[in-house]
Design a binder for these strands. Structure first.
Lengths: 227, 227
DNA sequence: AAAAAAAGGACGGATGTCCGTTTTTTTCTT
DNA sequence: AAGAAAAAAACGGACATCCGTCCTTTTTTT
């Protein structure tokens, strides 16, 4: 699997994503017609991610968002009850998508090594396809309210657990070394994150997403595979 | 070298750091007595980093800073001309310290492998000793004014270049593999950053700084060393 | 007593949010 | 099918609050 195959494989329509958001937030969304809600959620989220790729969520005013999305301030407040809720809404959905896609893809692997490769590739490819979303989810997590911060942390650990489980499975089957599994998973995760946190760097160096994914797999195998 | 040896070796007194800041910002600091300036700069920076480990710099008001530092709002403005300058001041100094310590330590190594180990250890140990500072420098870089953002990017590339140079030296001496040097340096850097970006994770798992540094060295050697 | 430093009131501007009004869409009636 | 009535959605002015910064006054130090 390479990136262009991944994109065809994983169908991430904006309508579908906003549909999920609507389901999760029916009670705080005051507009009734589904089509209208989904259209406007797409505009709102696109606008938020666009603005927040340049400045922080806190620095983005509702007036900024109104200008970028083309909805009035009053209209915006029909889709969330306050600014913080908008942050929570996008973050929650971002984590959900990442988890869904990751577990879906891994399920296709039949042995630990294949699963590991799938996990690495699909995480990097997904963060490439949704770079603004991933960046936002990472960088704005600290501005979440306390209880939502806890959820973000749990999600991070959950993702890491996916890698830990794959590695442990490989240890049991004697394809991977039984050597600091938890740290191995942690540094793999760190490498995955670097792709969307430092995209400017890789882009300016003309490192393609496929090249990066292959390299991370190479590193992971160097640590894990029994010689 | 382990962490406690590093701390004795590298003498990072707050007075010294604030002294350097004073030198760099003599024209914008209105207070004349050096001792007073240094004392208060320490209080201001300590307070800023403490507050910003909990919320963003933008979310920190001058009133917050006043309360935490014990200086009045008016007094604060004797040490910087505006809030943004305070951000720039801390960031600049943070990058400076990191670069100084890193190059100082590396110079002690006599061969590429030793230099690589020294570079990894000193970066991780330094980020451990100054975790709030490193976290702040990383996370608030995006809120810098445009030209200072450029400086931050240059600094990041410069640090990475240190690793690239070490690896290239090793390639020439045929101790390291000649295989994607730039990406190797990039992922090493990503692992270094994870230590201060995700300290809560490593702490809760009781991973010590020495253990983490050794593991990163182990990974780096797995990628680089000729078998 | 003079100089230096700190204090904190005041001000203009920006922000999140509310809510009465206007516009658009849908439904109903003829 | 057309137009009126009702419902839904969007609008944007207004308000209270908070913030950065300035500047005069007070306190501390020399």
């Amino acid at each position: 699997m390479n990136y262009s195959e991944f994109k065809k494989l994983v169908n991430l329509s904006k309508e579908e994503i906003s549909g999920q958001i609507l389901e999760r937030n029916r009670n705080s969304i005051k507009v009734k017609k589904e089509k209208k809600v989904i259209d406007n959620l797409i505009r709102i989220i696109d606008a938020t991610l666009a603005i927040c790729s340049k400045k922080s969520f806190q620095a983005m005013s509702i007036r900024d968002l109104s200008a970028e999305s083309g909805l009035s301030r009053g209209a915006l407040y029909s889709y969330f009850t306050n600014k913080e809720e908008l942050l929570v809404l996008i973050q929650t959905q971002g984590r959900e998508i990442a988890y869904q896609v990751l577990t879906d893809q891994i399920a296709k692997g039949s042995d630990p090594l294949e699963k590991l490769r799938l996990a690495i590739k699909s995480h990097i490819y997904l963060s490439e396809a949704m770079r603004n979303w991933f960046y936002f989810t990472y960088i704005e997590a600290r501005n979440l309210p306390k209880d939502e911060q806890k959820r973000a942390i749990e999600s991070e650990l959950q993702t890491e657990k996916i890698f830990i489980d794959i590695i442990n499975e490989g240890v049991k089957e004697q394809v991977f070394r039984d050597d600091n599994v938890v740290l191995a998973a942690a540094v793999i995760k760190a490498m995955l994150q670097d792709w969307y946190l430092k995209r400017w760097k890789y882009r300016s160096r003309k490192v393609s997403v496929d090249e990066y994914a292959d390299f991370v797999i190479h590193v992971a195998e160097s640590i894990l595979l029994i010689k």
